[in-house]
């Protein structure tokens, strides 16, 4: 019996399992058409161009598939006798040479005409009002906002953008090759050690989008994600101004526990003596959408779990586990960090 084919008592063959499998596969495919991480649900100028290109390709591919199947049906069911050599020669010339050349030329011209939209190099040439430097590290994202004439603002694992404004990204890597991709907005572009790559994006819709690392970078590659929060320009300016200042909770209870256990060797918190640069900046970690580079909900229990056994949550992480600390100490640090908004 072949896979997907069931037989009843009379030996009749039913194809129900195959049908169910097909429906499940179809439903899984459909789920990619929308959501926070879908290139088919664009929220940016570049993603719109890519989505249009995709649908043009799908439509063209479908038409060609129908034509090929039609030709196959015609040759095997309607006109079953051999075709003349002359007719076959004409088919090869027009169907095998002229048609592909014309289609490929049109597709290439269309693809190239999208280039100024996807890679607007003129926008990059002059110093932009906002440049965001993103560095891929195993397995998190270092984010630095550069504004003309002002001090840079350092954050991690979350990128915020003003809607309707073109933003220039400088993409770097600290260790291995990563890839920067916000499917809903555009991209992707590799982050290569020793090289600065430049990408520009323009968001057209506010919202929170999921952005995974798109190049295998190690054991926790699949756990390396960031959130992209697209905001109204005024709200973005207010947020960036707040982000540049120390958190109101920076000096709260729990800072002592944080410093006592050496966390500042790797992490920085603006307004305190913690100024480590090995791990993610935690100045406003409590206000981020997620924790642990997009894999945990930003709540006390997640902090506790991450402090206690980070290697269990994220294999290959450089942060050591602090499971030797008393539960109260870990919880104190967790509450302090959650309060950094």
């Amino acid at each position: 019996m072949s896979i997907g084919v069931a037989s009843d008592a009379r030996g009749r063959r039913e194809r129900r399992p195959l049908k169910q499998l097909f429906l499940i596969a179809f439903a899984v495919l459909l789920s990619g058409c929308a959501g926070v991480q879908s290139a088919l649900d664009p929220a940016g100028t570049e993603a719109e161009a890519v989505a249009t290109l995709f649908w043009v390709m799908v439509a063209g591919g479908t038409l060609i598939w129908i034509a090929v199947m039609g030709g196959f049906y015609y040759a095997t069911r309607i006109k079953r006798e051999p075709h003349s050599e002359r007719a076959a020669g004409r088919l090869i010339l027009w169907g095998g040479a002229v048609f592909p050349v014309v289609v490929l030329t049109l597709l290439l011209a269309y693809g190239l005409s999208l280039m100024p939209k996807l890679r607007p190099w003129t926008a990059v040439a002059e110093e932009p009002a906002l440049r965001i430097e993103v560095t891929g590290e195993q397995f998190w994202w270092r984010v630095t906002y550069h504004r003309a004439g002002e001090d840079p603002v350092v954050a991690a694992n979350e990128i915020r953008l003003p809607v309707g404004e073109r933003v220039v990204f400088t993409l770097k890597s600290a260790d291995v090759v990563h890839s920067f991709w916000i499917p809903s907005l555009g991209g992707k572009m590799d982050m290569i050690p020793g090289r600065d790559n430049t990408l520009t994006l323009e968001a057209t819709r506010t919202g929170i989008y999921r952005s995974p690392c798109a190049e295998f970078c190690g054991s926790s590659h699949a756990l390396m994600v960031f959130s992209t929060v697209v905001m109204e320009p005024d709200a973005f300016d207010d947020w960036l101004a707040r982000e540049a200042r120390p958190s109101p909770g920076a000096k709260a209870d729990g800072l002592d526990a944080f410093l006592r256990n050496g966390c500042q060797a790797c992490h920085a918190i603006t307004g305190t003596e913690a100024n480590g640069v090995i791990g993610p900046d935690l100045s406003h970690v409590g206000s981020r959408d997620t924790l642990g580079a997009g894999i945990l909900q930003n709540e006390i229990d997640s902090y506790v779990a991450l402090i206690r056994r980070p290697d269990v949550i994220k294999p290959g992480i450089r942060m050591p586990g602090f499971h030797g600390l008393p539960d109260e100490e870990i919880e104190t640090i967790a509450r302090y960090l959650k309060g950094l908004e």
């Binding site: 290439l108 011209a109 190239l112 005409s113 280039m115 890679r119 190099w121 990059v124 040439a125 430049t198």
Partner: peptide
Amino acid sequence: VIFTAMPAAIITECNP
């Protein structure tokens, strides 16, 4: 050869 040259019709600057 035409396909190879076509990008030059679109690209107007070195990408930084």
